[in-house]
Structure formats: C-alpha cells, structure tokens
C-alpha cells in the first residue's frame, strides 16, 4: 500500500493522459491491407496447388489405367532391354576374350608380316614360350595315336607303350618362329616348341631303331630255329618293304597291317600283351600253312 501511495501521483498522471483515438480512415486502410494480404495468400496457395497438381498429373499420366495402361508392358520391355544391354553383353564379351586364339593373333602378326621387321620384346618371348609349353603339355596328356604310317609301324613293332608315353610330334608352324631385328639383320629364332619337337622326333627315331634291332634279332633267332621265315613278319617300315620289293606274303602283310591298326586303336592294352598277341598270330598263321 505504501508503494502504491508512493507512486500514486505518477499513476494518476499516466491515467489522466488523453486517450488517443484512431483515424476515421483506419477501417478503410485496414480493409486495403487485408485485401493485399488475401491476394498474397491466394498467390501462395495457387503456387502450392500448381506444384501439387503438376506432380499428380505426372504420376497419373504414367500409372493410371484409363489413360496409358499400355505403358506398363512397354516400360517392362524397355527395362528388360536395358538389363540385357548393360549386363548380358559385357559378360558375353568377357567370356569370348579368353577363348580367342591369342597365340595365333600375336605370332601371326609377327610371322605373316615378313616385309615388316618387328622387334620382339622379352615379354613377347616369354608369352610365346609359355604358350608352346602349354601346347606340349596338352599334347602329352592326350592319348590319341599318331596318324602317320611310320608311327603305326612303330606301334606294330611293339613300341606302342613308348609311343603312348611319348608326346605326339607337333608340326612346326611359321608362327613359332620369331624374327628379331638386330642391327638391321633379321634373325629367326626357333621357338622352344620346335626344339622339343625335334627332340621327340629324335627319340622316336631311336625307338624305331631299337625296334628294328629287336625284330632283326628275332628274325635271326627264327632263322636259327628254322621255323619262321622273313616273308611272314612285317617289315620295320613301308620304305623297307618298298626297298626289298619282292616279299611273297604281301597280302598277308596287308591283313596283318589292318589288324595292327585295330591294335593301335585299343590303346589301353599293354606292350607285353600286344607282343604275345602278335606272336600267337604268327604261330597260328604258320600252323595254318
């Protein structure tokens, strides 16, 4: 109460201050401001509605059944095509690349361009060596008999097992030759595959020689025994047959040759079995005669 009495004078002065009244134009001015505010609100709401309508119409155009229901399968096909293009083809390409004949392409480029002298790098040599090694190993693993008649003779003589164990001869290709340009002189270097093939050929020759020696020793033994004749035993080679020229049992030789071919196809039989079969056949023929 004392505080109120203390400030009573000021309170009275403040209360006695004249009340300010608004202008006569107050309501008109207020109406104008309200109209402006409403116009702003309408523009804002129109913008919002326009944006929402635009979105709705966009989605309706795509997904409504009434208007564009045919778009659904079309979009599906487009998606499938995209998947094929983006995923299938790149994978297909990657699959094809490793199967491509790399050795041919690389080496043929070197060999088939004799006019153009190319410097082969160490890396290319290494690649060639690796490829040659792969070829030899793959050929060693295969049990297919050689197609040459000479080799068949070798099988007939009893070197089937050796032949099977030995790698089949690889015909040297032009591509296996590497040309190196050294001080404007072109040098040809044989690839390691050729060298290996040469070794194999030399081994096969040695084996043939051994077989021929064995046969000759057998013939000698037969002569000593007086039962067996040279006519009934097949020669080491056809060349030898040609040289001798006057073999009486030529027909029989042909027959035995056919049988030998059959024997070659049965690659699973061992050398000893083959020898026994041959001996038995010879003995039977003699008995028949």
């Amino acid at each position: 109460m004392q505080e109120q009495e203390e400030y009573m004078e000021i309170r009275d002065k403040l209360k006695n201050l004249p009340k300010i009244k608004s202008d006569d134009n107050f309501e008109i001015m207020l109406q104008q401001k309200i109209n402006l505010a409403e116009a702003e609100m309408q523009t804002i709401s129109e913008k919002q509605n326009y944006s929402t309508d635009e979105k709705k119409s966009f989605f309706k155009k795509i997904f409504t059944r009434k208007t564009n229901y045919w778009l659904i399968p079309a979009l599906g096909t487009v998606v499938i095509i995209l998947i094929i293009v983006t995923i299938y083809y790149p994978y297909k390409k990657t699959e094809l690349i490793p199967n491509a004949p790399v050795s041919q392409t690389l080496s043929d480029k070197v060999s088939d361009s004799p006019n153009v002298s190319r410097q082969t790098t160490i890396e290319e040599k290494k690649i060639e060596n690796k490829l040659a090694e792969k070829n030899t190993t793959s050929e060693q693993s295969s049990d297919v008999p050689p197609k040459d008649i000479k080799n068949l003779d070798g099988y007939y003589r009893g070197g089937i097992e050796k032949e099977l164990s030995q790698p089949t001869p690889v015909t040297p290709m032009k591509s296996d030759e590497l040309r190196i340009k050294k001080n404007d002189d072109i040098e040809t270097i044989n690839a390691p595959a050729i060298e290996e093939q040469q070794k194999i050929e030399s081994k096969s020759k040695e084996s043939e020689q051994k077989d021929s020696r064995i046969i000759e020793s057998k013939k000698e033994e037969e002569r000593k025994g007086g039962d067996l004749s040279i006519e009934k035993s097949a020669p080491a080679n056809k060349d030898e047959v040609g040289k001798s020229g006057k073999l009486k049992g030529a027909k029989e030789y042909k027959k035995s040759d056919k049988k030998n071919n059959r024997a070659v196809t049965d690659s699973t039989k061992t050398n000893e079995d083959d020898l026994e079969i041959i001996r038995n056949e010879i003995l039977e023929k003699e008995k028949n005669k």
Binding site: K19, I20, S22, F26, E27, L30, K33
Partner: peptide
C-alpha cells in the same frame, strides 16, 4: 481499434506509426 492505437502511440510516441502498427496487428 482505439485501445490498440492508444497503447501503440504510448509505446512508440508516434501517431502514424501507432496507426500503421495497429492495422498490421489486425491484419
């Protein structure tokens, strides 16, 4: 309107400002 104009006139010390502010308040 009168109460508000009076209050705002005492707060701002300017009648025109008071009238404008009162109209803005009603808006």
């Amino acid at each position: 309107k009168d109460k508000l104009v009076n209050f705002l006139f005492r707060y701002t010390g300017n009648r025109d400002d008071a009238e404008d502010l009162a109209q803005d308040t009603f808006v």
